[in-house]
């Protein structure tokens, strides 16, 4: 999989993490369109994370296909047709599972680093 474009030399979102960020954002904020999701991720992460906003769309379609998020057409603030995304029940479960996995991995790495002399 070549989702991470190395040629750009930017501090990209690690692969797989973006899905987690999107799910978490929708859990916190409820229904949102693609642009707002991208902005929210940028704002929360501050300058620490440089996201090409476009990268959100391949992630969204994949999450939608898995049935974790639901998309509905609505109108943007510029009065244009745009998709609004919201978390599904399955998505909530998936998010919980992902978060648990993430925490376990973190804890493991943290223990490993602390154990070092």
């Amino acid at each position: 999989m070549s989702n991470v474009d190395m040629s750009k030399q930017r501090n990209e979102v690690p692969y797989g993490t973006l899905d987690l960020l999107v799910l978490k954002t929708l859990e916190t904020m409820g229904t949102m369109n693609g642009y707002r999701i991208a902005r929210r991720i940028e704002q929360v992460s501050g300058d620490a994370l440089k996201l090409s906003q476009g990268a959100i769309y391949p992630a969204l379609i994949r999450l939608e296909q898995e049935g974790w998020i639901r998309a509905e057409w609505g109108l943007s603030e510029t009065n244009r047709k745009v998709k609004f995304y919201s978390l599904t029940k399955a998505g909530g479960k998936q998010l919980a599972a992902e978060v648990r996995k993430w925490e376990e991995a973190n804890a493991l790495v943290a223990r490993f680093l602390e154990a070092a002399p």
Partner: peptide
């Protein structure tokens, strides 16, 4: 459609 809306909002 999403892309155009996105750019407009941005």
């Amino acid at each position: 459609a999403e892309l155009e809306a996105h750019l407009e909002m941005a």
